[in-house]
Every structure is written in structure tokens, then in C-alpha cells.
Simulated assay, not measured.
Amino acid sequence: MPASTATSLLAYCRPGFEGECAQELAAHDADSGGGGYARAERGSGFVEFVLPDADAADRLARSATWRNLVFSRQLLRALGSARNLPARDRLSELLPIVQADAFDGEPRRWCDAWVESPDSDAARELAPLCRGLNAALIAVMKKDQMIDRRSRWRLHVCMTATDAGFVARAMVDAAAPWPGGIPRLKFPQAAPSRSTLKLEEALIVLLDDGERERWLKPGMRAVDLGASPGGWTWQLVARSLHVTAVDNGPMDAALLGSGLVEHLRSDGFRYRPSKPVDWLVCDMVEQPRRVAALMAQWLADGACRHAVFNLKLPMKKRYDEVQQCFSLVRDALAGRVELRAKQLYHDREEITVYARALD
């Protein structure tokens, strides 16, 4: 039977990072008044954060948005959950939860509906079920005139088992625009390593369309620290940037033949450009605070305008380590820095950060 969870938020995350996702939500909850608690199972790929009332849920949803959370790929407002769903008629239990949600006294209209599952090994097996249920749900919603493509609301059904799931909603312009919060990218065959997908995803997730157009223009100059064999350099060259690739290891021959890459066999922690560059990217395997300090120095010295870098996280106290790295960067620039960060789909035990110094 349906169980009300109208005062909870549902966050998708990388399996194994439910604790960090819960910590981050708890920190935002404390800042916005407190009183909530997390329900999570390690490896599940999601966290339910329960609030004492609807007002507290609204406050947390305003404070902890998808864009400013590091460990959450998607953040939704839960409308209810259901267990023991009948295998032949799951919609009979899910639709009443949807229909009970009203806006300005009228049943809410939806621009679309997504039936999805968390990114865990067990939940991924639900993909065929989700596809079939999604088609059936859309058909019923169209028949009942619940779909309005102009609506700013999107309906989400998160199936956590064949007979259980959450019903949730998202405001389209405040939520991740991909099912599961994961942009599906295809590996470019010409790229020299799969790490190229990390930078591609970072540029999609951490920057909006207008920012990419303004800040990534052909002819700009970039430095890639720890570049070998060139996965991140490839993304910059594909956008016609001139790249100085700094690494003692070899670089991909095709990249070197592009005419846009200069390879310097040098220590990434010691190298500095002769004049400021537009972009600094860094995917070096090193202690996160050491990388954060290096990025802070480049930004504080005006050696780069924009930076994208990975922080490889320790096995324990990962959330605390992230906060310490952020504080280190902010302190170095006296707070005049913008930081955006996300644990991307193509990240593992790491997060990806975008930073720029503010005038």
C-alpha cells in the first residue's frame, strides 16, 4: 500500500557514497533549520532525507539544489512511496500518489514523466521494467489529460525493486536534465583514453550552454597538467583550443600532429606558463589537498581564468576532505572564487571541480 513521504527529498548518488550524500544533505538541513534525517542503504545508489513537515522540506529544497550538491546527481521532492506493488498492475498503486499532488488547488499537470532506477547493480536490472512502465504511465497520463508540455514540473517514478518505488516531482529548470541525473556519453574512438569522458561530462554538468559558448572559444589557450596520454587534452583540442600538455609520460601521436598541442616533459607541480592562460585542467593522481593548493595558487596568481580538476578522495572522511579542500581554495583567494563540484558518473573515488576567480 502507498506510504506517505511527502515531507522527504530523494537524492540519487554513486553507489557506495550514500553516506557522503546524506552528510551533505544534513549539513544543508542544519543551515536551513534542521530536524531532518537520512534513510539510506549502502550500495543502493539513493538517499531519502526525511523532514519534519512540508515547510522544512521546502526550505531544504531551496538550500540544497541539484546544482550546488557535490554527491547528489539528482534531487527530487518525494510525493510518496509504495511497496508490494502488484506485478500485473503497478500503476493502480502509483497513480493515486500522482493524482493526490495538487498545484493551486488543481491536479498538477506534468511536462513529462520518467520511470527510472538508481545506479546500483541490482537496480540496473530493472531497466526493462522501467521502460515498459514508463510507456504505460505516459499513455494513462495523456488519456487523463495530465500532460502539458508547457508545465514546469516533471514527474519521476524511481523503482527500487520490482514491487517497490518512489513517486517524486522536479521543477525542470532546477533539476538535472537527464534520467538518473546521468548524461549518457559515447566514447569518441579517436580519443586516446576513456578519461576523456570525465572532462566532457564535467563541461556538460558544471557549465551551462551559454557558459560553454562564452568561455570555450576556438583559439583560447589551455594547460593540461598530468596530460599523458591525452584524454583531457583531446577534449580541448576538439574545441580548437591551443594546449600545453605537461607530463613526463608520452602523448598520443595524433594529438601532437594536430598542430594545437605542445608537449612539455615537466613536473606538473612546478610548471608555470610564461603568460596567463584561459584554462587549466588537471587529473593528476595526488593527495587532494595538494592538488587543491596547486589550483588555488594558479587562480590566485592570475595564471589561469578557469580551472577544472579532479580531487582523488581518501577511503574515510571523504565529505570532510572535500570541505577542507574547498576551504583551502577559498582562503587562498580571500573568498573571491566560484566553486562548482560534482561526483560525476565517470568519476570513481573522486570528484570533479570547476573554479574561477571572481573580479
Rank of each mutant, 00 (worst) to 15 (best):
residue 105 G to P: 13
residue 55 D to H: 07
residue 128 P to H: 03
residue 113 A to P: 02
residue 208 D to H: 04
residue 314 P to Q: 10
residue 340 R to L: 04
residue 39 R to C: 10
residue 50 V to R: 11
residue 199 L to S: 12
residue 41 E to N: 05
residue 122 A to F: 06
residue 102 A to D: 07
residue 137 L to M: 14
residue 20 E to W: 02
residue 243 V to L: 04
residue 127 A to Q: 12
residue 136 A to E: 10
residue 29 D to E: 01
residue 265 R to P: 03
residue 181 G to S: 06
residue 43 G to A: 09
residue 50 V to S: 08
residue 244 T to M: 10
residue 325 C to M: 05
residue 106 E to A: 15
residue 154 R to V: 14
residue 215 W to F: 15
residue 53 D to T: 11
residue 165 G to E: 10
residue 244 T to Y: 08
residue 152 R to D: 10
residue 254 A to D: 09
residue 352 T to R: 09
residue 321 E to R: 08
residue 287 Q to N: 14
residue 155 L to I: 07
residue 341 A to N: 06
residue 311 L to Y: 10
residue 190 A to T: 08
residue 178 W to H: 04
residue 153 W to Q: 08
residue 51 L to M: 15
residue 229 P to M: 09
residue 313 L to S: 06
residue 77 R to T: 12
residue 162 T to Y: 11
residue 329 V to F: 13
residue 11 A to P: 01
residue 294 L to T: 12
residue 18 E to Q: 06
residue 288 P to Q: 13
residue 241 L to V: 05
residue 30 A to I: 06
residue 101 D to S: 03
residue 216 L to I: 03
residue 295 M to T: 11
residue 13 C to E: 13
residue 37 Y to T: 02
residue 261 V to L: 11
residue 241 L to F: 09
residue 239 R to T: 02
residue 220 M to F: 14
residue 201 E to W: 03
residue 224 D to K: 09
residue 196 T to P: 01
residue 302 G to I: 11
residue 182 I to E: 12
residue 160 T to A: 00
residue 345 Y to N: 14
residue 349 E to Q: 12
